[in-house]
Write a protein that binds this DNA or RNA. Structure first.
Lengths: 230, 230
DNA sequence: CATTCTGTTGAACAGTTGTTCAGTGCGAGC
DNA sequence: GCTCGCACTGAACAACTGTTCAACAGAATG
């Protein structure tokens, strides 16, 4: 099950990750992977049983790399950037591979996302304790939203690149000059919010009702909820 | 170029949207679309030239529907929910189709996203004028981030459903009981932010430097920037 | 040296794909 | 009633796909 590094299987798996990342999932064929890895098409199936098996191996590898680096990063203290562990340049296509597979429901990607969420819950709690972050009425929900906002940005990196000139899949992303375009608005929202205090207090009763019962088709705050729904 | 409604071409196009939405882009074939539409495979190509042409027709249709409803929604006042116009049940698979195509860089989807961003800029400006929203140092950047956060949530709806029990592609989404799980944390962040005022003021100098020069590989605020990068 | 074993090959197979096109049916216009 | 035109069919085609497998090389083992 475990793949020896520097082995042929590892070369094939890395070639597959590169192919999935650059050609997309649909554009990846056994022959193309074989060509990149410098082996025969038969060898690809020989090692992984099928193309689906190869895809699963890539997912498992993504998961294991993330876990390895996460442990190393843990010692360096909490970090709100759930993706930082994939951006060290050792595996240049891993981030783009993740971006590609995020929006299809593979089980091991789900496991990865769930892990990121529970990590984020821990980091957020630490941030609250240390006085850096505000406490939340719904710590789990806040962690889910923040993690998926992040991953969503990654999976839409084409649009983000077009609109803000920032490439989230670039290993050298952190030293892009335009990175301010990306961080500035996010820090502004995370720092001050978007709604004014007046607006929040004027809709407080609707919000607490929402927190208790949820929105029902004919709940009276429907009008406000629609305007406020992001 | 314009497709007559109720025509065979329209039926094929709707079948394609359904197929793209439910089977994914890779899982959609000419024969499957033909079966759903109740026509022969040849007819599919006859009407749209090729499968790529069919895909483009679907994108164009998505764009035109969005524009139509947007105009109608304009009269009802600004609305921060950029997706509300697609959620009226007339075309039950349009939202799921959008979710499917968001993460691949089709030109007309790019046009759609750009339109949503410039709409959002307008709505946000109106919200600022009316006192509902805080002004921003970077109105364009804020609009981009907020729109792509939203679209990213949509494109990751599988994960969101697993984690918060909310299905963004469901036409009846607004009346789901669990919708509070989704709205509550977002309203909290948009209302109050995430960082504390103390943390924000302690990193103010780093933030203003960022706003002016961006982050460079050896800029001194690198440490803080990493902790703050979401 | 002979033999086994492991890893690799690449030709071949069956299945699916997009696309073509001669032929069919059917309704409108005369 | 006849004919024309058009939309549609579905069998056929070439190009691809994942997968199989007999053959092969080369190192390790006896």
């Amino acid at each position: 099950m475990e793949i020896e590094e520097r082995s042929t299987a590892a070369r094939i798996r890395d070639a597959a990750i590169e192919c999935f990342a650059t050609e997309g999932i649909g554009g990846t064929t056994a022959r193309r992977v074989a060509a990149i890895a410098g082996v025969s098409p038969g060898s690809v199936i020989n090692h992984f049983g099928s193309m689906e098996g190869l895809r699963e191996a890539c997912d498992r590898y993504l998961l294991s790399v993330t876990r390895d680096r996460k442990e190393r990063a843990m010692t360096a203290g909490p970090n709100l950037d759930v993706l930082a562990s994939l951006r060290d340049g050792t595996h240049p296509h891993l981030m783009a591979y993740l971006a590609e597979v995020l929006s299809d429901g593979s089980p091991s990607v789900a496991e990865l996302v769930d892990g990121m969420v529970s990590d984020a819950e821990g980091y957020l709690a630490q941030g609250v304790e240390s006085g850096m972050l505000q406490p939340s009425d719904d710590p789990h929900g806040r962690a889910v939203i923040m993690v998926i906002w992040n991953l969503g940005l990654l999976s839409m990196h084409h649009h983000l690149f077009r609109l803000l000139d920032v490439d989230l899949t670039d290993p050298a992303f952190a030293s892009t000059p335009a990175i301010g375009n990306y961080i500035r608005p996010i820090m502004e929202i995370y720092g001050n919010g978007v709604f004014t205090a007046e607006f929040m207090s004027s809709t407080r009763e609707a919000m607490t009702a929402l927190a208790e019962h949820g929105v029902t088709p004919d709940s009276p705050e429907e009008g406000n909820a629609q305007e406020g729904t992001p």
